[in-house]
Amino acid sequence: MTIKPILVFALVGLTGPAFAQDSSTLNIDGANMVTEIAAPSHMENVDTIYSGWRFRSTETQELELDDFDNPAFVFIDQGIDFWNKVEGSAGKACASCHTNVEDFAGLRATLPRVEGGKLVSMENLINDCRTERMGADAWKWSSSKMTAVTGLVGLQSRGMPMSVAIDGDAAPFWERGKELYYTRVGQLDMSCSNCHEDNYGVMIRADHLSQGQINGFPTYRLKNAKLNSIHARFKGCMKNIRAQPYKEGSAEFQALELYLASRAEGLSIETPSVRN
């Protein structure tokens, strides 16, 4: 017997995605971001996709407009320090091989991607370098060190459109991610789509529901005053619907990450974004 939560009753009666927009144009330090674009053809139930920035209050939106005001940059600075820090048996820092982090422009836009038959996220690429080329310990998926560096590398792609491959080798992972997105789980028996596709734009208690796009990750959340990874956010969402979350770095979360990245096709990368 499926237990329909009170939550669903609260959402019933609202006529589709209602939109209380605050500002609709995002310009960060002179660069225009695409926060609204036609949905990719593989999305059957959504016509237009929006960045999570569009769903936040004016004050939260304003925090992202300039890199001094953006609280995430305290952590980006830390990312620069980690980039230059020598660690591990090889006596190297990231900077020893990658002198200019700017060379990574474009990387964030194409991740996750298939390499050697496996789906890899940025966290995997960083840990591979650390363990195989630096002789250093792997960082935990959502640790402050990892998010500082995925933030720094992601920033190099800011303004570029999300554009992941979903065909060829990526196809089976994408199909798995899509299946996960639409599968109901947990005591509240909800799928990602119930909120982020069927009800984006409406209020869930005091929160303005977004489409759950990942174009701004790692994101600075007001809630915990730090950078948050994609998988940490997935985990939190699953806990909220009283489901047993998959592990960060798991095949399930990576497939979901790929599928979600494809739902953001064309939106500008805003890393490091500011959300609540």
Binding site: I204, R205, A206, D207, G236, C237, N240
Partner: peptide
């Protein structure tokens, strides 16, 4: 001051 519906 609000508490969001879905904090994650």
């Amino acid at each position: 001051v609000t508490i969001g519906g879905c904090g994650g």
